[in-house]
Write a protein that binds this DNA or RNA. Structure first.
Lengths: 363, 363
DNA sequence: CCACGTAATGTCAGCGCTGTCAAGCTTCCT
DNA sequence: AGGAAGCTTGACAGCGCTGACATTACGTGG
């Protein structure tokens, strides 16, 4: 070593921010490096590395000396350098969602986070803000940051651009919506069955003209929920009137407008099934304004759905659990890169509260 | 160059995933490296680097050849290596929040993201899940990933552990709550004024016994909102009854219990001021169960507050704008590391809806 | 037609860390 | 006592990229 006796090294370093001993140059970043810690502790950099990474084979007294030097210098591990040296990241996974706002994504993220932390993984969330092009950019940005795996809530309809990443060893899991045009693990809610149950519930009340309000079909969840709506009608032997199926509204006002129109047709809708909670709130507001009762069942639960009047019957899903499942799939994939693809389908639950039990008007 | 004629290089590489030409070894990660791209394009690695980073001084035809090689090989930039070589990260900032769930944080994050993207920065969100110790870990984890700056919504009460990071050049901005025991930029809502306005509103209706329900005082927002409550009383010449101040409930059920107790005291509370939307919903539910009217004003707005009965009067804040401001502060700090510390204080807005205008019972 | 200025491209070291392997030091056995 | 075996520690190369500087190619004016 550089001729510094072990025993005096620590006390000699009283000003961590001041220019250090001449032997080891200060790093460009302004942060102390492992080499400086090593010098301060009177050991080799490799030993410092061992201590930091908890590798075995370091005697307690040495480890302690290193720890003290770390504390004294305010050393922070340089994750970029470590990733580079190792050739892979350690303990980091990414989550790509459309936007952080919205209860559904927030809960999904917290489920992912819960499992990630339990497995010592740091979770990085990046949002693609509803833009399919940005989705690709965001995923690649995360991948180039050497995360060990990525959970994607996809928006776009073609994920072939991920082939390269998958081939080069990136673990990718899809959540809430399945991958398109590539094979990968995914965790989903049983959208078809959930929607079918909700719509069947309305049909059982005697409704025959049930509006469906959803997003564009490009998003798989929409298509599935519409399929559930269709199946429920088929099971009940009722024809679907295409005029009652509205795809497109994404915000509260346009949903209000759409529902108002459908409920005031010459042959009006007497009930509505909405595809997500925002649309449900919009529909609920529209119904509140109308002078005739319209039944309502929504997909996805929301705060205060039980206390507004009428309280809203919903097909509830469990986004937190969805996140947990997705993270488990990801961990499995990271551990076994060549395992067979797995798919998790979560059930939904009909929560009866009132709005879905309004009978159709007698004629 | 390695003797490969420029003109045939591209077509010769038909199997990007197959073992490449012997000259350049395959990287350990399984992803192609810049050197391989360079070889494929018949240029030097540095030129590839120039193209990727958009540096000037590359002739269009060369750039195009490089682009083609990148596409063909499925090359992805290795961000870790780039950060290491540069000594700093490029275009990445971090956001540390307590938990992604909850409308407030979600909106704040989307404000941050909006500005970040507009400035070409990738945002990484990490959650500390309500645990003050985790907060430190999470921030340091982000810092060790070489982000250019961090926005923190702090939970803990002592941020001196950041001194080392600040000194070594990390840009840190606090949002929603000020830093404790260190100096730093921050963006806040005017909690004192907002709470004062809300409570004054209740006092003007004639209420003299107003409950305050909040979190632990350790969180600065709580302390400030309580201070606003006190100021309003002082301004109105009304004494605060300490028995009406309840700190601690964080979820709906415990808030319900607390309010029920206060409203059924021998000398009961006739109104309540709640410190955040979760508490407001809890209080609202409790009031709904009681046989006597209790006025309610809550801090922070929430979905459906206008349609429940009674509709809830709130002191609204703008979390999206708060996020935007914080991000602007961060950008400024990154650009000017030695600038003076800046503080942004956002105003609140009283939204009158009904629950806050319930008069005290005549006696 | 050549010296010279400028634009385009290449060379090379090294960022901070870790994997591999080798060296030094004990300890314990025969 | 001698040596094998085990343990702790160190030396060193190199991960993939970029900054600084060197070199080459290309025009241009005298």
């Amino acid at each position: 070593m550089a001729g510094i006796p072990d025993s005096v090294t620590m006390t000699a370093l009283s000003h961590p921010a001041a220019p250090g001993p001449a032997g080891t140059p200060r790093p460009r970043t302004g942060r102390p490096t492992m080499a400086q810690v090593a010098e301060a502790a009177g050991v080799s950099p490799k030993t410092v590395s061992r201590v930091i990474n908890g590798e075995p084979g370091v005697v307690a007294t040495t480890a302690e000396r290193v720890e003290r030097a770390i504390a004294q210098l305010g050393y922070r591990h340089n994750h970029a350098a470590a990733s580079l040296a190792r050739g892979r990241t350690q303990d980091t996974v990414g989550l790509v969602i459309e936007g952080i706002a919205g209860r559904f994504y927030a809960e999904l993220a917290s489920g992912v986070e819960e499992v990630a932390r339990a497995h010592g993984q740091q979770l990085l969330i990046a949002s693609s803000e509803e833009n399919p092009d940005r989705e690709r950019e965001t995923i690649l940005a995360l991948a180039s940051r050497q995360v060990g795996g990525i959970i994607v809530v996809p928006r776009s309809g073609d994920h072939r651009y991920l082939r390269t990443e998958l081939r080069s060893g990136l673990a990718v899991v899809f959540a809430d919506r399945p991958p398109q045009r590539i094979k990968a693990d995914y965790a989903l809610v049983d959208n078809v069955a959930g929607a079918r149950e909700g719509v069947t519930h309305l049909l059982r009340q005697g409704h025959r003209r049930i509006a469906f309000i959803g997003n564009e079909l490009a998003v798989a969840t929409s298509a599935d929920r519409l399929e559930g709506y269709r199946q429920a009608h088929r099971d009940a032997g009722v024809d679907v009137d295409p005029a009652l199926v509205v795809l497109g509204p994404t915000d509260v006002p346009s949903t209000e407008a759409a529902l108002t129109r459908l409920a005031t047709l010459p042959d009006p809708a007497t009930a509505a099934f909405t595809q997500n909670s925002r649309l449900t709130m919009g529909a609920w507001r529209a119904i509140k304004q109308l002078d005739r009762p319209v039944a309502l069942v929504g997909f996805d639960d929301f705060d205060l759905a039980d206390v507004i009047d009428p309280p809203v019957t919903v097909v509830a899903q469990d986004p937190v659990e969805l996140g947990r499942r997705a993270m488990h799939l990801l961990l499995r994939r990271i551990a076994h890169h060549n395992a067979r693809h797995h798919h998790d389908i979560l059930p939904t639950r009909l929560v009866v509260r009132g709005s879905g039990e309004i009978p159709p008007p007698r004629r």
